[in-house]
Design a protein around this nucleic acid. Structure first.
Lengths: 255, 255
DNA sequence: TAGATGCAAATGATATGATCTTTGAGTGGA
DNA sequence: TCCACTCAAAGATCATATCATTTGCATCTA
């Protein structure tokens, strides 16, 4: 897998952050996303100090971070108040991860898939006018490899190539915010894979569409690139939709 | 201005957060976004304690928050390292605010405008199938008021109605992530207004397009709603583009 | 001389306990 | 009934101390 730009890779999911801070933060974040600690619940610092057997420093630092992503609100004389989901920074990668690990997983997948449906076609459109020659070639090559992996039934490899493909397109869009969405896309794709929510044989159509996107971008045909990506997204969305039915609805929980 | 859902309003920009924590956080955040403290710079806690004349607790809590949005990375024996912009959580409202206040303002406006261009049409499309009867009526009414304010040349009022209009559409999309983008849209629109980057008389066309969007959504014609919103976005984008030329380029700074 | 090894200083991480400040709630008077 | 006052609870801030880890350098060995 030719890493033409190694410094941009390494989307570190900071998995084994081993400090006390990370441990407590993760635990509380999970609890809030998971619905234990529903909005309106009140915590207090000393209680947390006891519960986690850590010092005030650690607890306060964790609370500051949770406050910065809208999970809590500290009120004097009252305690630490859990805020409703509508206040959360739903774009924070940490939050996404917690939500994907919670019962609201399907709702989160739906949200992100809709976001992708909106953003990726436009990203493809922009990429067509902004991508460099070499990057374009790489993209076409990547699509070819996806085709090969798909035909060979190599799911693992297909997944990685798929993620890489969408990453490159978002990167080539030249929009820093789109680039940042790449992490979300990766979370979604790996999440789908982990939970066996993907067709075991990628559809022949999907393979062709990836190739179409790459080719259109290389030929600087923004409109065609957008169209091809729209189709790709529609298919992804349909697969997602069929999943809700399998797993018993999207557990809406939007607000 | 009929507040049919007062509890959702009040997009508190937390302006006068008066604690020590907020003061130091804001100062450091601004410095990092502003390019003082370029990537690779090293700070250390004691130095910050002295510089801001606050205790270690305050500094550490601030650093934790900065770390959580990707601005810094603490390394033992080294100090606090400033991370490159590519690591930032560019969707964090706080970050957006800092960047809009910095020299990279135009680059930020461009990014968000492109994001809007991608998202809002799809939001309009989704809204057409998900909006409630009353909300749809409100939306049409809002467009009518915009027309009135535009004709009357009441910029202030037009701005507020414009923000409210887009907020309602994003809200009606039923996607929590789209809803969250509303803050960004509001920042952009108010930013444009503050810096006198808007045409003094809203274009007649824009007024009509807002009305078209509202009507299409009410009639549940998703495709037409999308098209109308696309046109609106194209116009917004063109205005933005003409601004870059005025103010001497977008100060690219994307990566 | 080159490379491995070990020590110690630097610096963040955590702990602890005290003091300051804000604010909700209760209390009492008009 | 309502307003003003008081008090105490809880977070906010501070100061200091100890622990843990990493890096640079000196030392040692082949």
């Amino acid at each position: 897998m030719e890493p033409s730009s190694p410094e941009v890779a390494a989307a570190s999911p900071l998995p084994a952050e081993s400090g006390l801070h990370a441990r407590v933060l993760d635990h509380l974040g999970t609890a809030i996303c998971g619905g234990e600690l529903p909005p309106g619940s009140v915590l207090n610092i000393d209680e947390l100090v006891e519960r986690y057997a850590v010092s005030r420093s650690v607890v306060r630092e964790v609370l500051r971070v949770l406050a910065s992503i809208g999970f809590i609100e500290a009120r004097r004389r009252v305690g630490v108040l859990i805020r409703p989901a509508s206040a959360w920074n739903v774009f924070d990668p940490q939050v996404i991860r917690w939500r994907l690990a919670s019962a609201g997983r399907m709702a989160q997948l739906r949200s992100i898939t809709e976001l992708r449906t909106a953003v990726e076609p436009h990203a493809a459109f922009l990429a067509a006018s902004r991508i460099g020659r070499d990057e374009a070639s790489d993209l076409v090559g990547l699509a070819a490899k996806m085709w090969a992996a798909g035909e060979a039934g190599d799911e693992e490899r297909f997944l990685h190539l798929d993620i890489e493909f969408h990453r490159r397109v978002l990167l080539a869009s030249g929009n820093e915010m789109f680039v940042r969405l790449q992490e979300l896309v990766a979370e979604v794709l790996t999440g789908r894979h982990k939970h066996h929510l993907m067709p075991h044989h990628p559809h022949e159509q999907a393979l062709q569409m990836h190739a179409d996107v790459a080719q259109a971008i290389q030929r600087r045909d923004g409109e065609r690139a957008r169209q091809a990506m729209v189709q790709l997204m529609e298919q992804a969305f349909d697969e997602m939709k069929s999943l809700w039915e399998q797993t018993g609805g999207p557990e809406h929980g939007t607000g």
